[in-house]
Amino acid sequence: MCLWRPAPHCWTVRPDAHGRWRADWQVPEPDPVPAVTIGWLTWHIGFWWTTVLGHCFGSGAPEREETGWSGSAAAAADWLRGLREQWCSCLSGLTDADLDSTERTAALPWGGGQTLADVAGWVNVELTKNVAEIGLLRNLHGARG
């Protein structure tokens, strides 16, 4: 189901010549933006969460092209659970002053100048949106009869 394409014009994930799963992407995004697969959505969640963690709590993050997909729904779920655990661990010891600071977010490709609390709120909204999109794709896939 992760690779089911809901429309002909669709972004997905696919293995490259070396067997590493890569996500479709284009800059600038085409208009209209393509539909996406569940695999692409799970890659997308992992990509932005890895990026936020790397820039806000690490020494940087890999480029989008370097962030591969895990290859299966179970592996993607494990990857995302691990990112969630890392995110919760990083946030748990922070003070109000830490959350109000823009120091950790300065290197983000998006969100620079926002407080860490603002970025944490965005993570919640983005995760909720992406999970809702996964749910919709599951419903559409099931409704095909």
Rank of each mutant, 00 (worst) to 15 (best):
L136W: 15
T51G: 03
R5T: 12
G46I: 01
N139V: 15
G93I: 05
V123N: 03
K129W: 11
A23G: 13
S72V: 06
E65Y: 01
V125H: 05
Q26P: 01
T42G: 04
L53I: 05
W11E: 06
P28W: 09
W87D: 04
R144L: 14
R104Q: 15
V36A: 13
V33Q: 07
N130Q: 13
G71N: 05
P8S: 12
R14T: 14
W110A: 06
A23F: 03
G82Q: 02
T105M: 05
D96E: 15
A75D: 15
A97V: 09
L91E: 07
D31G: 11
T12V: 05
W21K: 05
E126G: 01
W43I: 04
I38F: 04
P8H: 04
E65R: 12
R14D: 02
W122C: 06
W4C: 07
G135R: 14
L108E: 00
L136P: 00
C56T: 11
G121P: 03
W122A: 14
A143I: 01
G39Y: 05
P34G: 09
E29W: 14
V52I: 14
A73S: 12
G54Q: 07
S92F: 08
W110G: 00
Q86I: 06
R84Y: 01
G54W: 01
A77C: 11
W4G: 02
T115Y: 06
T67W: 09
V13K: 00
V119Q: 02
C10K: 04
R5L: 09
E85I: 01
Q86V: 10
P6V: 12
I134H: 04
G112V: 04
T37H: 08
A61M: 08
S92D: 15
L80C: 03
K129E: 14
A77M: 10
G68D: 07
G113E: 13
A17G: 10
A7E: 14
W40L: 02
C10Q: 07
W79A: 13
A120M: 12
V119C: 04
A17R: 11
A17N: 08
V13E: 00
L116V: 08
R22K: 14
H9C: 12
W48M: 07
R22Q: 13
T102L: 05
T105E: 06
F47G: 00
G19T: 10
G60D: 14
E66Y: 02
A61Y: 06
T115H: 11
F47H: 11
L140P: 00
V123S: 04
E133T: 00
G111Y: 01
L137I: 08
H55R: 13
E85P: 03
S72L: 08
C88I: 02
W49S: 01
T102A: 12
W25R: 07
D98H: 10
G135P: 01
P30E: 05
A117K: 13
G71S: 02
I38C: 11
S59W: 03
G113D: 14
Q114H: 15
A97L: 11
W25A: 10
A74R: 09
G135Y: 07
P15C: 03
V36F: 01
A17H: 13
R5K: 15
R64C: 07
L80H: 03
